[in-house]
């Protein structure tokens, strides 16, 4: 007769569970750190951020550029902070995912049009083509981490919901 499921919790599965938990915590800490730093470094200089946004030559009027320059730094910082709380984590990941996709579109269209811009990721810097490539790679990595964490959180919530229904 097969042993009950809980008895199969061997050293190997214990290790896997722990590695998974620590890996998730590590990725969350890195994501939170990156976005809190990115947001905070932009809060101090909104005009420079507005200039950086305008350099992307997107179809945005003056009002929209100002609204983005005033909102984005706080949105990144708040979302980064909200990653630390389980209840707000999914919403924060959702926001950060959307921001990362929008940033990829903005940077991608600039690169395709041959514009050399400063990515504006961590405050203002000199525009450079290498910097743009680095920013795209970094953003793809961040986006992958965000999607993986969001799926993990969603599955966890669904599992918790079904467990609470059973009990």
């Amino acid at each position: 007769m097969a042993a009950p499921k809980e008895r199969l919790f061997t050293g190997e599965t214990f290790m896997k569970a722990h590695i998974g938990t620590w890996l998730k915590r590590g990725v969350l800490a890195v994501l939170a750190g990156v976005f809190i730093y990115a947001g905070a470094s932009k809060i101090i200089a909104p005009l420079e951020l507005a200039d950086t946004i305008a350099a992307y030559q997107l179809p945005l009027n003056g009002w929209m550029v100002s609204v983005i320059a005033l909102t984005l730094p706080f949105l990144e910082t708040i979302s980064g902070l909200f990653l630390f709380w389980r209840k707000s984590r999914r919403a924060a990941l959702c926001v950060l995912g959307i921001l990362s996709v929008l940033f990829l579109i903005a940077l991608g269209q600039a690169a395709l049009r041959g514009l050399v811009v400063d990515c504006g990721c961590f405050g203002s810097d000199a525009p450079s083509y290498d910097g743009m490539v680095r920013a795209i790679l970094r953003d793809v990595l961040l986006l992958a981490a965000i999607v993986a964490l969001y799926k993990h959180e969603l599955n966890h919530q669904v599992r918790m919901d079904s467990e609470s229904k059973v009990s």
């Binding site: 909104p46 005033l70 984005l72 706080f74 708040i78 999914r90 959702c94 926001v95 669904v158």
Partner: peptide, 23 residues
């Protein structure tokens, strides 16, 4: 759940705009 998260995300965006305008 995704819709709920998006809604909260929108609330966060509005709150960020208010913070940005105030600062």
């Amino acid at each position: 759940k995704l819709f709920q998260d998006m809604t909260w995300g929108l609330v966060m965006a509005v709150f960020s705009l208010v913070c940005g305008l105030a600062i």
